[in-house]
Design a protein around this nucleic acid. Structure first.
Length: 113
DNA sequence: GGGATGACCGGCT
DNA sequence: GAGCCGGCCATCC
């Protein structure tokens, strides 16, 4: 484990923390915000490390399909769905029903800076 | 230091 | 309309 995190990770963590409750975000959007839209993989990788940071709501981050692909990395895996449901997000079969409605638009808030 | 993997995305077939 | 392939960045072995 590196003591110091890459700037890219810092940016990702900062953005994820700005996700309001009851809203979700996608890897692509986050990647685009940090300027690396061409490597959403790094976002997911960073999130896996961010999984150890309780201040980072990684459960609010899903793929562009609204599918909870990273739920298997939670403990327990169903925790991700439980947390989202608690925030008022409807999930069916690991898929967000009102994905478009619950999707957080940082471009509208533009308050992550 | 090199190769392989990853909570992905986009384009092409 | 659905499925397959490649590619980007960062980390791990």
């Amino acid at each position: 484990m590196r003591k110091e995190l890459s700037e890219t990770y810092q940016q990702i963590y900062t953005i994820v923390q700005q996700i309001p409750s009851g809203k979700v975000c996608t890897y692509g959007i986050i990647a685009q915000l940090i300027g690396t839209h061409f490597s959403a993989r790094v976002v997911g990788y960073a999130l896996r490390h961010a999984h150890g940071y309780p201040e980072i709501p990684a459960h609010r981050v899903v793929n562009r399909n609204g599918l909870l692909t990273g739920r298997l990395h939670f403990h327990p895996p169903e925790l991700m769905q439980i947390l989202l449901e608690k925030e008022g997000i409807c999930i069916q079969n690991n898929h967000i029903q009102d994905f478009k409605e619950c999707l957080w638009n940082p471009l509208e808030d533009a308050n992550y800076l």
